[in-house]
Structures are given as C-alpha cells and as structure tokens.
Design a protein around this nucleic acid. Structure first.
Lengths: 110, 110
DNA sequence: CGGTATCCCTAGCGATACTG
DNA sequence: CAGTATCGCTAGGGATACCG
C-alpha cells in the first residue's frame, strides 16, 4: 500500500514542522504541567539564549500550541501555557519521554 | 516536584539526541514496515541528498536503531531495517504521525 | 548500485548590549 | 521582568564529481 505510506509521511512531516526547532519539545515539556513565566523557563533551560527562547515561544504561539498571557503587574509578568489544542501534543511528548527513559535504563545496564 | 521534572527533561533530551537530525524520523518512518534498499529510500525521500541519507543512516546504525545488511549480489544490494531494539521506537513514530493527521484535519476545516 | 570526497554556502544560532 | 536589536560565526547541509 504505497498510497498509505505516502500519506503517513505527510503526517509525520506536519508534526515535525510544528515541533522542529532545537528547543521546542523541551520548552513544551516544561509547560506540560503548569503555566510558566519567561524567567522560569530561562532558569529551567539554562543553555538556551534569550533570543532562541523568545523566538521558539513565538513560533509555538503562532502555531496555536501555547498561550502567552501578560499580567499587567509591576514588575511585569508573562505566563506561557498550553492552549487546549496544544494539549493534544502531550501524548506525543509523553511518548518521547518514555522512550528516553527506557533507552537510558538499557544504556546504563551495559 | 521539581526533581521529577528535571528527570523527565533528561529523558526527552535523550530521545531527541537519537531522533535529532533533519531526516531521521522520516527515514525511520519509511523503514517502519519493511526492509528498504538505499535506492528505495532515495526515491521515497527525493529532497534528501545522498550525503545526508547515508550520514543519517550511519548514525542510526551506530545508535543501534537500524541494521545494515549487504547482499553480495551483482548488482550490489543493501537493505536497511529496524533492529529489535529500534522497533521500540515505533510507538513514538506512531504518536508523531497520529498527531500530524489530526492537525491536518483541523487545519483543512478552517 | 551504493556509496565517498570535496568544496562551498547560508540559515540558524550564540553573544552582547540595550529597552519599555 | 520580559523582551529587542545587532553582529558575527560555524556546523550542518547542498551540489557535484568520482569510486569499488
């Protein structure tokens, strides 16, 4: 069934287009459970530069995966969280995480 | 439970280290169901260059995800397929594919 | 057929400094 | 605090030609 394979390929590519980018999956992982502020994300992913962090956040926002909410307090506060739609990605993130866990177990045994 | 989150992060990163690289997930997707030859993969992924194809195949081979089998025929034949271990990745690939399918559905509706 | 080797380029990323 | 703006680099990838 070559037709089906071709179609599946398109699906995979579609997901990769959204999740592609060096840091996106990692950022989403951190947002998985609760709203996080910009500064919290920076601390959670120390290797990322501010430029990359904001860039990837923007792209995720534009793709409808996350919300950006500004609390007009002083000092300024911005919270990032999954949209309802973005939450559909959580099983995918879970799958990636689970496999990594298994893989590490096996590697440590050897 | 910040401890748990940190651990999960490690797991995700581990998976990304294996699946990272522009073409790997796509290549694996094509190998999912059956052994494929080098030339078949080239046809299935026309945008990839030979260099990238062979490079990503080698990395997947080194990570123990796929097998490379040479059939000493004339003309030369080489088959790539999942290792038993590599097959544990299939649920991950499935998850990526499924999400892409849903995403496309929704986008086409709008 | 199934690769290597080489050269080259540019998008993506990093570092730094600055701003509302 | 939460970003922008700029500049510069380099590693990852593309094109092409050749090899066992």
């Amino acid at each position: 069934m070559p037709e089906q394979q071709t179609e599946g390929t398109l699906f995979v590519q579609t997901t990769l287009k959204i999740l592609g980018g060096k840091w996106k999956i990692l950022i989403l992982w951190h947002l998985k459970d609760e709203v996080k502020r910009y500064s919290q994300l920076k601390k959670l992913i120390p290797e990322i530069t501010e430029k990359m962090l904001i860039q990837q956040l923007r792209e995720l926002e534009n793709d409808g995966i996350i919300n950006r909410k500004v609390y007009s307090d002083v000092p300024l506060k911005v919270g990032y969280s999954f949209t309802e739609y973005g939450k559909t990605l959580i099983p995918v993130l879970k799958a990636l995480c689970d496999w990594g866990q298994e893989h590490l177990k096996i590697m440590n045994r050897e």
